[in-house]
Amino acid sequence: MSELLQFLFSGVTVGAVYALVALGFTIIYNASDVVNFAQGEFVMLGGMITWFAHQAGIPLPIAAFLAISITAAIGVAMNKLAIEPARGAPIVSLIIITIGASIFLQGAAQLVFDKQIHDFPAFSGNTPIRVGGATILPQSLWVIGGALAVFVGLWIFFTRTLLGRAVLATSNNRLAAQLVGINTNFVMTLSFALSAGIGALAGVLATPITLTAYNVGIAFALKGFAGAMLGGMGNPKGALVGGFLIGLIEALTAGYLSSQYKDAAAFVVILLVLFVRPQGLFGRKSTDRV
């Protein structure tokens, strides 16, 4: 029993990181119909910049804030320089552009920082908390709390604020949104800043547990993408549930079946779900316009 609890704890912790990445995917997808494969690099940048700044003597909270702001700015730059000029391009081209951006950011990170593995101290120490025979690190609580806080924040933003509704309107119909006076360019900028910032936050929160290096991004991107697809692309609730599910499936597979195939389990589940529900768990069935 305590064993199961232990696996659940670790699953929820990783799942929270995946959920944050999946939420980042969702925001950009909603605003621009682009699946941003560079999303994982935002996580990497969050961790690496925080480590770099912290090492240079800047206190951790300020370093984290810096990392999130800089990454958000990089997200905005990416939108302006790479995504907006390619509007209307076929999906394959967009996939290649964002993967190109991802490779570019990795290349830049290994030049600016280095190729070593890094971490920084956990926010509230490393004394494990005992719960029902299992233990959980205080940092895990930070990660899980972060994911939930971001989800609630986004929910309030999208349903309760004018700006958030403008983002939703743009994702529904760009032209119609423009016609009612929404600055859709600003909405795009905002979405990329938000998405990159959330990715960086995931990196800041997770690094004390998972460590970071210039090449950790792609794994986060694949899992987050899988989570977002599992829940149904474009649906924040789906992203949250999908991310946590992928984390839990991985942890349970690693615990009970085989740690080598833990990455496989998530993709087997996705294939099965997509066979039965091609639109994902929470996605609405799409109809084609002829």
């Binding site: 190109g100 951006a101 570019f104 290349g107």
Partner: peptide, 20 residues
Amino acid sequence: AEYEQLVLGLVMMLVMIFLR
């Protein structure tokens, strides 16, 4: 070698943006 990834990523983006 140090710039390989940087250049590869850049080429991928530029071609797809300007030569669709």
